[in-house]
């Protein structure tokens, strides 16, 4: 292409020089399409989880007295631990990305595996928690609190699961030698998703578990 494009390089050179060469893709905003799209998607997800959280809060306020409620089932110390686990997975995620940016492939893999494992631990904790709640008598259809609680945390859990799948995919790519600092953006975007899921849990943990019932 270079020969065809050469006439115009001269023309646009003045504009291009201010730009740090080819480090940035030549888009209007300077952001890559993928990154912009990911943030748009996350913006949209705010409304999704907002609706679910609002539904939960409303449902809880409408729970008839005497029905099995949050106070009867929640185990705050346990959930605190799993919340902490998810929070720390965000740290390992940024460390993975940072390793990849430096080209430390081995470290990258270690941190990615750690992130996925922490995520897996969180999911395992959630499964355990659901089982305990179920055994306490809180099924999905038991009452309005049960429906809202399982739906909200279930949606979040599904997001985490998808995140784990994506993390494992990057791991496979890395092992097959298809990942390099040049395309670290893919990992960065998965990280964004992962952190988003984490901040959703920050909200859920406080609003659903810690708020005085």
């Amino acid at each position: 292409m270079s020969d065809v494009a050469s006439p115009e390089t001269t023309v646009s050179a003045p504009a291009a020089t201010g730009h740090t060469a080819a480090a940035h893709p030549p888009t209007t905003t300077g952001l890559t399409h993928n990154k912009l799209a990911m943030w748009l998607f996350l913006g949209s997800e705010c409304l999704l989880f907002g609706a679910l959280i609002a539904t939960y809060m409303f449902a809880k306020s409408r729970l008839p007295a005497g029905e099995l409620g949050p106070n009867d089932v929640f185990d705050i110390p346990f959930t605190s631990v799993s919340s902490f686990v998810l929070l720390m997975s965000s740290l390992t995620m940024v460390l993975a990305l940072s390793a990849l940016n430096r080209g430390e492939e081995r470290n990258f893999r270690v941190w990615i595996v750690a992130t996925a494992l922490l995520g897996g631990t969180f999911i395992a904790g959630q499964v355990y928690e659901f089982t305990v709640f179920y055994n306490l008598g809180l099924g999905y259809t038991t009452n309005i609190f049960g429906s809202a609680f399982y739906t909200l945390t279930g949606f979040h859990g599904a997001h985490v699961t998808i995140g784990i799948v994506m993390l494992m995919s990057t791991l496979v790519s890395s092992v097959r030698g298809r990942l390099s600092p040049r395309n670290a953006e893919t990992v960065e975007l998965i990280g964004l998703y992962w952190h988003f899921v984490d901040i959703v849990w920050i909200l859920i943990f406080t609003i659903i578990y810690l708020f005085p019932q």
Binding site: T29, L36, G43, C46, L47
Partner: peptide, 13 residues
């Protein structure tokens, strides 16, 4: 731009 998009989502929600 990214900040605005995200903040828009949060504020609307």
């Amino acid at each position: 731009i990214l900040r605005r998009i995200f903040v828009a989502g949060i504020v609307l929600a």
